[in-house]
């Protein structure tokens, strides 16, 4: 090799992303359970709870459209968490060091699994939407609304991937990284998960739902499914996600720079 050779960030990112995709495809168990659980949510909640949408607080909304964001968001968390778990595997079996010894871009090493996770998440979301379509979903905002939902999901996934990658690089072991994904539960369930805000009984749950960023994501998605184009829920949803991404991506970037230059 000529010694002044320069690495290419784009080639490195492409190579790492491709590798992560191959890994995901060869281990279907990474994504299939997650997808099944999300569809399970959709069927069970829709089947068991759809009667409550008769209540006036639902304002005549279809329960399927109301519960669908829960299914999408839970699938997204699983998909995005995979990025962190892929890195933990590399750290544990020593392959991460082998990658650090190449002149490749340090950022690309972390970016590859994240991009692959985003692609996985996109496909999952489309699948869930297709299933919902066959269950009778109607999107009030039309095709544009579907795109908005996909963008919201991607943003949410990116925020969660940043978090999971950060935790992975800090703890460097699978159990701790796995434990880190348990924020999943409060994020999904301490929110307007099953009923609108007005119907939440417990005061503490109202408080939790107000500070839980997932609430604003649910509201934004529900607004395009149920009400059509409404500015405020969308602006709020995207703002919350942007803020979350800023926090978690910085967290993962700091963790990454620590992990790649051990003291």
């Amino acid at each position: 090799m000529s010694e002044q050779k320069k690495g290419s960030f784009l080639v490195d990112t492409f190579v790492f992303t491709k590798r992560s995709i191959i890994t995901i495809i060869r281990n279907p168990l990474i994504f299939i359970p997650n997808l099944i659980i999300s569809l399970f949510f959709l069927f069970v909640y829709e089947g068991g709870l759809s009667g409550i949408s008769e209540l006036p607080a639902f304002e005549g909304a279809n329960y399927l459209a109301f519960i669908l964001p829960v299914s999408i968001v839970s699938a997204a968390i699983g998909g995005a968490g995979g990025a962190g778990q892929a890195l933990v595997k590399d750290l544990e079996n020593g392959y991460f060091s082998r990658l650090l010894l190449t002149p490749s871009s340090r950022l690309a090493i972390v970016l590859g699994p994240i991009i692959a996770g985003m692609l996985q998440l996109l496909i999952q979301t489309v699948l869930i939407l297709v299933v919902a379509y066959f269950l009778g979903l109607e999107v009030a905002a039309g095709f544009g609304g579907v795109i908005v939902v996909l963008l919201l999901t991607l943003g949410w996934g990116l925020a969660f991937a940043g978090y999971s990658v950060g935790v992975a690089l800090r703890t460097k072991n699978a159990q701790s990284a796995q434990a880190g994904t348990f924020v999943f539960f409060p994020l999904i369930f301490l929110s307007t998960t099953f009923v609108p805000y007005e119907l939440i009984e417990a005061g503490w749950l109202k408080v939790a739902a107000t500070i839980n960023p997932t609430t604003y994501l649910f509201e934004a998605m529900r607004s395009v499914f149920i009400d059509g184009w409404e500015a405020w829920p969308l602006v709020r949803g995207f703002l919350v996600i942007a803020l979350l991404c800023a926090i978690t991506i910085s967290f993962s970037a700091i963790s990454a720079s620590k992990a790649v230059s051990a003291d």
């Binding site: 090799m1 010694e3 050779k5 590798r19 191959i22 890994t23 060869r26 281990n27 590399d90 079996n93 020593g94 392959y95 991460f96 060091s97 082998r98 010894l101 190449t102 002149p103």
Partner: peptide, 17 residues
Amino acid sequence: RWNIGVALQETGIDPVL
């Protein structure tokens, strides 16, 4: 890094590839 080759004690390879 461009000029060195390193084989560490703990051989790190991705078992899936």
